[in-house]
Structures are given as structure tokens and as C-alpha cells.
Write a protein that binds this DNA or RNA. Structure first.
Lengths: 191, 191
DNA sequence: GTAAACTGCAAACGTCGTTCGCAGTTTTGG
DNA sequence: CCAAAACTGCGAACGACGTTTGCAGTTTAC
């Protein structure tokens, strides 16, 4: 399992073949089936294993939003360390004990809030999604995706690309975006 | 290509094998390579083909935010029609002319705004991400992902699940969340 | 000390993407 | 009008994949 995670970190999920994992363990591919029922099993275990890196969960001492944001930042860092994770968590079977524990901890932080459970589940889904979104942006931020393309039919695009990049924004967008979203979902609407 | 999209809509991306596509076209698998250089090529073409469904782009008559929200809603509807699309757009090679045209249209709507280009690109990425997020939530909303799991170690989870589901929120979360996000990214910060 | 259980693994099966080579057809050009 | 060239369809095969089977070799249980 650690071998599989190492391969995925290095060469992506597609490189995690039973034969590759077995080779790294200096054994045969068929031997893995003594411990795993299938490759999907292995992927599920990988997802839940790295989810353990979200521990320890922060103590809910401050405001609930601060605590949730801390947890969301941990999620983003996790997805930056393991870019392949986002491909796995959209599979329902990848929900293991560690993932559930994180869910439960989030719900624990939100427990004092009067919002209905459906809103809380939506809020957790948003946390996950935003964390993945920002992690991907940082992970794939290397090369410009417009290299080698004929951009002449797209005037606004060339205008935006020729303009020099400005300084990064002062406050972190992640906190502002997610904070606003969670507040809108969970807090009694002040509007 | 239409055959491949039909297969993906019906049975998912994994079912789009060269042999399956060829069978639906009543031909041999090798024949496809007269028109496609690889399966990845086919996937890229599929992604750009369905991106054409985003047309016609709305006229930028109202406020820029209204126009962007309309375009984001079209994206969400697209991802609900083709759930496999979200797996494709994270590949850089999937950026085709239709995708670029949509990008360009978004930038056109944002053209009067004084925000730097980087902020506008981030805003488009957020639009994409949020649209995928909401589409997935509606697509995979069928069965509860906690079926057949032992939830006893997760007290907050069982507490939330036993509570009866409340009525859905009044205003659409999609507009509120994305609107707030885009305003925060693009409009001069009033804080 | 024998029986039972467990472990490792080569070989094989079916499916996948892809390539090759060869027929059959269409287009070209003199 | 016909041969040369180009294009098209595709059966067969290659390597890699996930997975199963069967059999040795080893460990455990009684």
C-alpha cells in the first residue's frame, strides 16, 4: 500500500498497476491477491490511507468557521501532496474509516450550528470541492495550457495574455472564497 | 465521435473502448485509426464537441455578473448531461477550439472590469470548478454513500443522519455561492 | 508427526490500445 | 481509357493490463 502510494506520487495513478506495485515489493503480481481482492480495493485503501494524514484534527477552540478553514487548508495541502487523490474520491467506494472520521469531525465542529443536516453535508461537499479546486490549480500551474495553439480567433484571450501579470492578491483567496461560501450555507442569512 | 459520446452518456467513460465505438459504427476497431491517432485523441474531440453545446453564448446586455452566471449555469447543465466530461477537462490536451471560444467569451464579458488578467483566469477556473461541483452533487445524488457501513464510531454522523431532512433552501445556492466568489475575485474589494 | 492452513508465484485467460500488412476501392494524370 | 498512386477497411497480432487457477513450499495446529 505504501508502495502503491509512492508510485502514484511519482508517476500518477495510471502507473499504479498490480505488476508495478508487485515489482516494487520484489514479488509477483499474483501474490498481491492474497491481501487485496482487486485493484479497486487497493485504490480505496490508498485513498483512506492518505486521508489519515489529515490528523490530528484541530481542537474546536475558536470560532467554528476558523476551525473548518483550518481543516480545509489541511485538505488542500493533502491534495497538493497527492494529486492523484482527487481522481479517487469521486468513487463512492473510496469512503473508508479515515474519510468518515474526517466527515464526523467536520460535523462535530458544526454541531452547535442550527443549520439542517442537509446544509451541513452540502457544506462539507463544498469544502472538499474547493480544496481540490485550489490544489489542482497549484499543482497544474506549471506550464501555460495555451502553448502551441493558434489563438488568433480569440481576441480577448490574446489581449489578456499579452498584458503583463500583476502582483498576486493580498489576502489568500482560498480563505475568503471558502469562508464566504460556508457562511452563506450554514449561518442564518443576515440579508 | 457521436457514437463515442452516446456510449459515454449511457455507460460511462470506461465503456468507451475503441472496439465498442467501432462496433456501434458496425466496423472494425483498427478502422478508427484512419481518422484518429489514438484513443486520447478521441477523448479530446469528445470534450470539445460537447463544449459546443454551450453555444449560443448570452449577449452581454445586463450586468457582467448576470452574464457570467448564465454561462456558468449552462456549464452546470452541460456537466449534468454528460457526467463523464468532468473526468476529461482536467487533461490539458482536452482544450480545443470550442473550449477556447468559451474562455474567450468569458473574458469578453469581463473585459470592462479593471481586474488583472490573472484574476480573470482564476475566476474562469472557479466558474468551471463550481459548475462541476454542483453538477456532480446532482448527478451522484441518488443513493446514500453510507449504505452498509458501520457508523457507530462516528457519533456526529449518525446524529445528522437520523435527523429528518429539512426543506431545501429558498434561493439557489449555486447563484449565491458563485456570485459571491466571482464578485470577491473581480470586483474592487469594498472591505 | 501428520494434517491443515497459509503463502508465493509462474502460467494462462480475456480485454484493452495500438500496429502491421494486405486486400479492395477510389482518385489522379497522361 | 487505363495504369499508377493514393486512400480505406480490417483480420491478425503484439504488449500491457487485471484477474484466476493450480501447484509447490512453508508455517501453524493439534
Amino acid at each position: 500500500m505504501a508502495a502503491a502510494i509512492a508510485i502514484a506520487d511519482a508517476d500518477g495513478l495510471a502507473a499504479v498497476s498490480m505488476r508495478a506495485v508487485a515489482a516494487r515489493l520484489e514479488t509477483g503480481a499474483a501474490s498481491l491477491y492474497r491481501y487485496l481482492s482487486s485493484r479497486d480495493d487497493l485504490l480505496d485503501l490508498m485513498a483512506d490511507r492518505v486521508a489519515a494524514e489529515l490528523r490530528p484534527y484541530p481542537e474546536p477552540d475558536g470560532h467554528w468557521l476558523d476551525t473548518l478553514l483550518r481543516m480545509a487548508r489541511a485538505q488542500r495541502a493533502l491534495h497538493e501532496r497527492h494529486p492523484w487523490l482527487s481522481e479517487l474520491i469521486q468513487r463512492a467506494s473510496a469512503i473508508g474509516p479515515e474519510t468518515l472520521a474526517f466527515f464526523d469531525a467536520c460535523l462535530g465542529v458544526m454541531a452547535p450550528l442550527p443549520a439542517p443536516p442537509t446544509a451541513k453535508f452540502e457544506a462539507i461537499a463544498m469544502m472538499n470541492g474547493i480544496a481540490v479546486l485550489f490544489a489542482r490549480q497549484r499543482t497544474a500551474g506549471g506550464a501555460s495550457p495555451f502553448a502551441g495553439l493558434d489563438l488568433t480567433p480569440y481576441p480577448h484571450l490574446v489581449a489578456a495574455l499579452t498584458q503583463p501579470p500583476a502582483a498576486p492578491p493580498a489576502t489568500d483567496l482560498f480563505d475568503r472564497a471558502l469562508g464566504g461560501l460556508l457562511r452563506g450555507l450554514l449561518a442564518p442569512d443576515p440579508a
